[in-house]
Every structure is written in structure tokens, then in C-alpha cells.
């Protein structure tokens, strides 16, 4: 699983990526600092829960992809039916590449979690 996540962290500007449960608990992570992963995980889980309550549950077929742009960095996350992938990156990171990669690794992780 770590190898799969590392595909995203190898993109320049990415500060870390994590796979978390819908409850915000970490399944696996590649983060440069421990504190960030927990905070990102909690935030992403909470937003994802709110979105699902309002817009409908995220499924593997129709996941929820969200990007939060802030003045010093960006958080991209993809919410599937069982897990969420969250990526923390710096300001000038190529979000397009991250969006494509995050969708790719979501498919891989789904397979891995099924096994």
C-alpha cells in the first residue's frame, strides 16, 4: 500500500499523502510530519461526511473529488465508498497531475483492500 501512495508523493511539491477510513483514522500514510497527517485526515473525513450527507454517498463509481486551495498550499482528496485518499501539497504543485494520479491509485487501493 505504501508503494502505491508513494506514486503520488513522488510528484514535486507533494508534502504527503494518506489513506484514511471514513472515520478519519489513518490506514496508511507517507507524510513528512506526523501531526499533519492526523489533522488532514480528520478534516478530510469531516468534510467528506458533510458532503455525503448533503450531496449523496460517495461510491467507487461516483467518488467525490475535492480540492481546497489556500494561500500557502493545497489539499486534494478523493472519497470512495470505503476510504479516502488525501494529498497535502505546496502552492505551485500541478493539481492536474495529482487529480489523475489520485484517481489511478484509488483503483489500485480498492483492489488491494479487497484481497
Amino acid at each position: 500500500m505504501k508503494n502505491t501512495i508513494e506514486k503520488i508523493t513522488s510528484i514535486p511539491g507533494v508534502r504527503g499523502a494518506a489513506v484514511i477510513t471514513k472515520d478519519g483514522l489513518l490506514i496508511d500514510k507517507v507524510f513528512y510530519d506526523n501531526e499533519s497527517s492526523e489533522v488532514v485526515g480528520a478534516m478530510v473525513a469531516q468534510i467528506s461526511r458533510e458532503m455525503e450527507n448533503s450531496l449523496g454517498k460517495a461510491t467507487d463509481e461516483i467518488p467525490i473529488l475535492a480540492t481546497i486551495y489556500s494561500s500557502n498550499g493545497e489539499i486534494v482528496f478523493l472519497s470512495q465508498s470505503d476510504f479516502i485518499i488525501a494529498v497535502l501539497c505546496e502552492k505551485k504543485t500541478n493539481i492536474g497531475v495529482i487529480t489523475i494520479k489520485i484517481k489511478d491509485i484509488a483503483v489500485e487501493l480498492k483492489e488491494q483492500l479487497k484481497k
Binding site: 489533522v39 488532514v40 458532503m51 467525490i64 475535492a66
Partner: peptide
């Protein structure tokens, strides 16, 4: 809620202020 929840965490992560949010559903 998205902005309210995000702002607190963004502050903890020292990411400054939220500018915009993008959501894709289907």
C-alpha cells in the same frame, strides 16, 4: 460547513487562508 471545517485545520497546517474549493461529483 466546508469552509468552517477547513479553516480550523488549514490554520493548524500553517497553510494560510482558504481561497477557494473545488468539488467534483460525477
Amino acid at each position: 460547513t466546508i469552509f468552517y471545517v477547513s479553516e480550523d485545520s488549514i490554520e493548524k497546517l500553517n497553510l494560510g487562508q482558504i481561497d477557494r474549493v473545488f468539488i467534483e461529483i460525477g
